[in-house]
Simulated assay, not measured.
Amino acid sequence: MTVTQLTHPVLEAAQRVAVRLQQMEEVKRYRLAEEQVNKSEAVQYYIQTIKQKQKELVHAKHYQKSGYTRQLERELDQLHEQLDHLPIVREYQQSQVYVNDLLQMIKRTLLNSVDCYLSVEGGIAEPSGCGSGGACGCKSKK
């Protein structure tokens, strides 16, 4: 029996979680904000201008033009600030932070749940426990 066959029910459960995540309003809001950011002419203008100024900055540093380097750094700071203050970008960033936090929480929950029952060292799974006797109910120590 292969690992895929052994974990098949787990993979199915992971797929169900992924589908449920995609159906969440927060994730839908993130996807919509991402789409709007990608289609926004204003956002694309700032992104292209920032890329151009960054290339100029690399050249200015290479040729040791310190005055021009400082000017470009100020311009880049202003462009980044203007981009970050566009309502569409703020919405995108806020939804991105929320979705990322949600995914990190799911990851920590999975890791803690698995770690409570298995200690994987050197590629070999050994029965173990978290040692706390808490939520997982184990009492063994690592």
Rank of each mutant, 00 (worst) to 15 (best):
E75H: 00
C130G: 03
K141F: 09
A42I: 12
D84S: 13
N100Y: 08
Q48S: 12
R70G: 07
Q104T: 09
V120N: 00
Y45I: 06
S128Y: 03
G133N: 04
K55Y: 05
Y117P: 01
S40R: 04
G133E: 02
I124M: 10
Q71H: 12
G123V: 05
H80K: 13
E34Q: 11
K141S: 14
A42Q: 11
C130Y: 00
G67P: 04
S128M: 06
D115C: 06
K53H: 07
E81I: 06
R74V: 10
K142P: 14
G67I: 05
H59T: 10
L32K: 12
A60I: 00
P127K: 15
S113G: 13
R20E: 11
I106F: 14
Q52S: 12
L83H: 03
I50T: 02
R16P: 02
Q78A: 10
D101P: 01
V99L: 02
L21K: 02
E126L: 11
Y63P: 02
T4P: 01
R16H: 07
L76M: 02
G122S: 03
M105D: 12
G129E: 01
K53G: 04
L83W: 01
M1D: 15
L79M: 00
Y46Q: 01
A42D: 15
Y45F: 15
H80F: 13
G123F: 01
K141D: 10
G67R: 10
L118N: 10
Q82R: 12
Y68H: 13
V27S: 03
V120T: 06
E56G: 04
V58R: 13
K39T: 14
H85W: 08
V114P: 02
S119E: 14
Q36N: 14
S140L: 15
D115A: 13
T109P: 01
Q78G: 09
G122M: 04
I124C: 06
R108V: 11
Y30N: 07
D115F: 03
R74W: 08
A125P: 01
E56F: 04
P9W: 04
T7V: 10
E73H: 02
L32M: 12
L11S: 11
L103A: 07
A14T: 09
T4L: 11
V27N: 03
H8F: 12
Q96D: 13
L110T: 07
R70M: 13
S119C: 11
Y46G: 02
S66P: 03
R70P: 04
V19A: 09
N38S: 15
G131D: 04
I47M: 06
L6G: 08
Q94T: 10
